[in-house]
Structure formats: C-alpha cells, structure tokens
C-alpha cells in the first residue's frame, strides 16, 4: 500500500471507530433504559460495592434484555477500539519515514482516546467496570469528534527535534498516563455525583457503592501516577536535555506537567489521610484531570513561548516576526526565540 492509501485507511478507521462507538453507546442506552425504573436491591456483600448491573434485577426479562445489550455494548466498544487501533497504525505507516503516530495534537488526541478505551477494556472484567462503559464510549466519541473537526492535520514527517526514541518513550508514557488519569477522573466525578444523589433507581443508584468507587478511582490513579512520573520527570527531561541542552526549562508545558504531578501526589496523600479519602480526594482528582487537560489543550493557546507547542505553526511564526522587529535586546534571546520557533513546529 502507498502512503496515501495508508492515510486514507487511517481516516476511514477513525470514521469507522466513531460509528461503532456510537452504536455501542446506543446499546448501552438500551441497557440502562431497561434498568431505569428497576430499584436497586441492596448489595449484601461485606465490603459493599458488589457489581450491580448484570444480575440484581427483579424481573427476569428486563434483566436479560439489559444484560444482552450491555454485552453488545462491550462487544461494539471492542470492535470500535480495533478500528481505532487501525487508524493509529495507518497514521504511523502513512508518514515517510514511518513513525509513531503522535506528531501533532490530532494524533496525540487520537492516541489518548485510544488508550482510554484500551485501559477500560483491559480492566473491565477484572474490576467489574461495566457501568463505566457508556461514559467511556460517550466521552471518547465526543473527543474524537472534536479532534476530527478542529484538530485534523494531514500526515507529515516529524520535525528534527522530535526524532528521538526518548520522545517515543516520553510520549507513550504521557499518553498512557493521560488515559489512566482520565478514567480516574471520570470515576471520581461519578463518585461525587453519586455521593449527592439519593435516588433509588437509575444510573447513579446502580453504580458500585461509594467506597468501591473511591477504590477504583484510586487504582487508576495509582497506575497513572508512576507512569506520569516516568514520562514527565524521567524520560521528558532526558529528551529535553538531548534536544535543548537543559533537562528542565520551566517552559509552560513543563510547569503544568509538574503541577499535574504535584496535584496527583497531593491526591495520593489525601487518600492516605483519613477524612480526606472519598469526597476531598475525588475533588483533588478532578483538579488533577483539569490541569492535565488544560496542559494539553489550553496552554497552547495561552502561551507563545512553549517549546512543546504542537499547535498551529502560523501563530508561532507571527510572534517571532514581531519579536525580532521590536526593541533592542541581547543576542541570545533573539536567537533563542528563532530557534525555538523552528523546533516547535510539529
């Protein structure tokens, strides 16, 4: 296959993934609609937090229908993930030379959403996360849509500074951690909603008990945190050192990665401090995920000095022109600005 064909395949993969995720969402909708009015039987298990979706419904027909559509939803999610994976693969192969599929925001988002789905699929049966299905699929669907509409860029080779295997390692880690933190954030959000809800029926009522939600959120964060540590505080600095001669530059992207890290460290501390477990920890987790996503999306628009700017090159160029034309300054700074612009184009 030619590069162009691979690129087309990638685009088709994204479209297919979107359609299949949408069908999965419909299946989940059927599942939860069937259970809508069925009151939740009290879970009796000792630790609380027994799974509540598949089994504990009074009327057998309703239960069967719900269980069937739940399984269908999961199956469709899996198929969607397959198409999603093909889309990623196609992106990488379409580039000449072949490369990892994360040279820009579009590809990073494509990878991040894939990791969210993949982590969900990997843990759903072990941790009994079937209730998370509709949220994950809905979330990923929305993000993919935004990605295709606003962030799409044609396949292009990486800029020189991005060609390093440390970059590959760094980004893999960042993407995986982003996926895990996102799942953790979703779970924490559900925790907070459920904590406020007194309803006997419906989605929130059928979620696992609060301590179980708290524990599941903790596990996702506990998985994400070391990966983030590795990505942001080990492989990132190593790569920065090779490319820019110093391992930490307090560049806005780095600052926010650090903030995210500190907030999640605080989350883990909070969990260990009795009384902060639960609600306060969940709030911290939401702050964490907000900093994470702000760093990914927001900072590109707020700051023109970021060396990591994956965002559009045009703004970057304009600001460089501006700077060179202004007041007298010392040599180093001007050259640094220019050099950065040249590296930052990704």
């Amino acid at each position: 296959m030619t590069d162009v064909q691979w690129e087309t395949l990638s685009n088709q993969g994204v479209a297919a993934a979107g359609v299949v995720y949408f069908l999965a969402l419909l299946a989940y909708a059927v599942q939860w609609a069937a259970l809508r009015d069925v009151p939740v039987r009290q879970a009796v298990a000792a630790g609380g937090g027994a799974p509540v979706v598949d089994v504990e419904v009074a009327d057998e027909g309703t239960g069967d229908r719900a269980a069937m559509s739940g399984r269908l939803g999961l199956l469709l999610t899996g198929i969607g993930a397959l198409a999603h994976a093909i889309a990623l693969l196609g992106r990488g192969i379409a580039a000449d030379p072949n490369r990892v599929p994360w040279g820009n925001m579009y590809e990073f988002t494509l990878s991040g959403t894939f990791v969210v789905v993949a982590l969900f699929l990997a843990t759903t049966s072990r941790w009994r996360l079937s209730w998370l299905g509709p949220i994950v699929v809905g979330f990923v669907l929305c993000v993919l849509l935004a990605d295709v509409l606003w962030l799409y860029e044609p396949v292009a080779p990486l800029t020189e500074a991005l060609e390093s295997y440390w970059l590959v390692i760094h980004v893999v880690a960042a993407v995986i951690a982003t996926g895990a933190f996102t799942l953790g954030g979703i779970t924490s959000m559900l925790y907070l909603l459920k904590a406020r809800s007194t309803k006997e029926t419906g989605y929130l009522a059928r979620l696992p008990e609060l301590p179980a939600l708290d524990r599941i959120a903790y596990r996702m964060h506990a998985f994400g945190f070391p990966v983030w540590t590795f990505g942001v505080l080990i492989s990132g600095p190593i790569w920065a050192h090779q490319a820019w001669s110093s391992y930490w530059n307090w560049d806005p992207k780095e600052v926010w990665a650090f903030i995210t890290w500190v907030v999640y460290a605080a989350y883990l501390h909070a969990r260990a401090t009795a009384g902060w477990r639960g609600r306060n920890a969940a709030l911290l987790a939401l702050v964490g995920v907000a900093t994470l996503w702000f760093n990914f999306i927001g900072i590109n628009f707020f700051s023109t000095t970021s060396q990591h700017s994956y965002a559009k090159g045009a703004a970057q160029e304009r600001s460089v022109v501006l700077r060179v034309a202004t007041a007298p300054v010392d040599v180093a700074q001007e050259v640094r600005v220019v050099v950065r612009a040249d590296h930052a184009r990704a």
């Binding site: 806005p252 500190v262 460290a265 900072i299 010392d330 600005v337």
Partner: peptide, 23 residues
C-alpha cells in the same frame, strides 16, 4: 503540596526572565 502547585501557576502565564527575557 497544593500550595506548591498553586505557586507554580503564575510562572506559566507571566513571561519569565529565565525562559524568555524578550517576552
């Protein structure tokens, strides 16, 4: 820890002498 996170924010919004003295 939370204070540290908070205190790091201004440096990402206001241009920094060490990072970009031109800005």
């Amino acid at each position: 820890l939370l204070l540290l996170a908070l205190a790091a924010i201004p440096g990402s919004v206001i241009p920094q002498e060490d990072v970009d003295s031109l800005a």
